[in-house]
Design a protein around this nucleic acid. Structure first.
Lengths: 190, 190
DNA sequence: ATTGTTATTAACCAATGGTCAATAAAAGGA
DNA sequence: TCCTTTTATTGACCATTGGTTAATAACAAT
């Protein structure tokens, strides 16, 4: 009989995002229901729909934050003080690192082909790829074919796309990642 | 008031598989419901559960057939009469070709991390990789590191995993596929 | 005919994503 | 202080989903 909580315990966008993030990261998009998030928040599922249009939009709000983190990270690597070949290596490794440490987000951005989330994520994914391509091209020893940069990206994507679910974080796949990156560098430099 | 149809139109495992296959391939695992298959078959969804334990098992029965096709195809390529480097190229291309022409099946085998289908698909996926690794190793010019074979596989997987959903079949991504395979060959031979 | 097996139905269950009228708390005047 | 408007929340409701199961009709064997 209390259709509204007192100010102190009111539901904010930020509080929802915070709780939803950890839950999505733990269990993945499909396995999390709006009702389960509501239960964790101690509110009704209807309340969440007041703050977010639907499940996809709630999720996307989370994803967006993380992707700007990735872009920033790539940018930072380019600006760094190491020599170019080290930087290039780092860009590739860090892409994998990001993918495996933000599996749920990576899934939505680069894997899910669900019409619900598609139009939103497509744009951001493209932007992130542009950042990546730009980084690789500016750091490579020789002038690269754009198609080879694309292949390098696809090969990285394959790594993340496979190891996601098998490992919990980047650390667990670090060795394999390093070796895979060296394989890709052979493709780029050869 | 007719809890059973006459013999001529009886529901068999084969008829279900046939109809379900085309539907799954068209729309993907998640987008197809047991009820929608039943509607196409002109029976109730309960009837399907008589023939298959659940949705995952029905789908897996379909996947299994297609994967034995892939294994056979790889085998056939190794046995062929071309020279080894052509054969190697073909093995890589054909893996992609299979992936893009059987997207729904590929998804379940190599992408889905859903506990419902997992234990079943894991085995078959492993077996297919063994076939692939064996083929690549026997066809390469020089003795390959197993980790490099693995990287090649992961890189191919990335290609399929990305283009699935964007293209309807292999033909539409053929050019990109050829270029990607050449990229991978540089990694293997360099 | 009787019996047992096989196939099919339809009613049922618990979840899900999503909508919406009702309503109470808060905020802002007068 | 009282009245009004805005804002946030609830919970009942809807359609759809995957899955279960008792009832029963069709068939085959005896």
């Amino acid at each position: 009989m209390s259709p509204r909580k007192t100010t102190s315990q009111e539901l904010t966008r930020e509080i929802i995002l915070q709780k939803a993030r950890t839950t999505f990261v733990e269990k993945g998009f499909q396995q999390v229901s709006m009702r389960s998030i509501a239960k964790l928040l101690g509110c009704s599922h209807g309340a969440i729909y007041y703050h977010f249009k639907n499940k996809a939009e709630l999720f996307y709000a989370i994803v967006e934050e993380d992707f700007s983190k990735l872009n920033y990270w790539l940018e930072e690597t380019i600006q760094g003080s190491e020599d170019d070949s080290t930087k290039l290596y780092n860009v590739l490794i860090r892409f994998i690192e990001f993918g495996l440490n933000h599996q749920s987000q990576y899934e939505i951005m680069f894997l899910v082909r669900n019409t619900e989330v598609d139009s939103l994520s497509q744009e951001a994914a493209n932007y992130s790829y542009q950042k990546f391509a730009q980084a690789v091209q500016s750091l490579a020893k020789k002038k690269l074919e754009i198609i080879d940069v694309w292949s390098a990206f696809i090969a990285l994507h394959g790594f993340v796309s496979h190891y996601r679910g098998y490992v919990d974080n980047f650390e667990e796949a670090k060795l394999a990642a390093k070796s895979h990156v060296n394989f890709i560098l052979k493709g780029l430099n050869g």
